[in-house]
Nucleic acid binder design. Structure first.
Length: 279
DNA sequence: ATCCTATCCTGTAGGC
DNA sequence: TGCCTACAGGATAGGA
């Protein structure tokens, strides 16, 4: 589900809606996510106030008073949801964490596939978390340029689509936006990353700088499970040019969009707009 | 080092 | 209707 625009949407909404709230109680399901939920999560959260909400790539950082920081990754199906005080709502299946604030507002974490992650950041210092330490630059914090991408890709023989998914190179693109970016840049996803020209990398960089803010402005893309913390779908799906549109006409030239598999994952592209010059 | 595959887990869509 | 398979927005360990 969640790539950078979806996680950033969640971050902004949490900042506006739970920052400053104090936690009264926490209930856990006991099931493990990608790794076990910290055993002391409930005990250490109780009585704390949420102070900061940050994001790097697809990782969300929830800063609390007392120097505690909780790292949250949504995996494929993770979602945070706000349940206002007084609203009578039965927790859906796969609700793993239920936080209740002192004013009665609730914050639930739901994750059917359990590929998500909840973990304390060591010493409260985000840079020291091993998962986060491996990440490449965040494209909102440090917008990519043709030069920065070309430098990161130098010598790489992997397909450019796969390269864009590598979070060590650039943190935040996932399967949807990698396809969308390459379509806008007019680059064949099968090209080897190390073989793109400077001009092509410039177009890729420009597409990244353009697509991500547009998707954030629409609250992200909802194909199936993603919702905002208010349970609303993101509206960027209507603007997708190729993703999940196999056989449908390219919005630019009308050629049927193609679906191929790269690294075990779907890639969508327009064979005309993204014609390969070099393999 | 780099690249590729398999794997974790559940829900859903589509073929028969 | 049911049964079965394939696939889904991610990350990562392990082998080549």
């Amino acid at each position: 589900m969640p790539e950078l625009p979806e996680v950033e949407t969640v971050r902004r909404l949490l900042e506006a809606n739970v920052r400053g709230r104090t936690i009264r109680a926490v209930a856990l399901s006991g099931l493990r996510l990608r790794e076990p939920v910290p055993r002391d999560l409930a005990r250490r959260l109780r009585g704390r106030t949420i102070r900061r909400l940050e994001r790097t790539g697809k990782y969300l950082l929830i800063g609390l008073d007392g120097g505690l920081t909780l790292l949250s990754h949504l995996g494929m199906s993770g979602r945070w949801r706000i349940v206002p005080a007084g609203e009578r709502l039965k927790a859906p299946p796969h609700t793993h964490v239920r936080v209740t604030f002192t004013d009665g507002t609730r914050l639930w974490y739901e994750d059917a596939r359990r590929f998500g992650l909840l973990r304390w950041v060591p010493g409260g210092d985000p840079a020291r978390d091993p998962a986060r330490a491996r990440l490449g630059p965040d494209p909102l914090e440090r917008p990519p340029t043709g030069r920065s991408l070309a430098a990161a890709a130098a010598g790489s023989r992997t397909a450019v689509k796969t390269f864009l998914l590598d979070q060590r190179r650039l943190a935040g693109l996932g399967n949807i936006y990698a396809s969308e970016v390459l379509h806008r840049a007019g680059v064949d996803p099968r090209r080897r990353a190390g073989n793109l020209s400077g001009a092509e990398w410039s177009r890729v960089a420009a597409a990244i700088r353009r697509v991500l803010p547009q998707a954030i402005a629409r609250m992200g893309t909802t194909l199936s499970t993603y919702r905002t913390i208010w349970d609303e779908p993101g509206e960027y799906g209507a603007l997708l040019r190729v993703y999940d549109r196999a056989g449908e006409p390219c919005r630019r030239c009308g050629t049927p969009v193609r679906r191929i598999v790269q690294g075990g994952r779907s890639t969508y592209f327009c064979p005309a707009c993204q014609a390969s010059r070099r393999a």
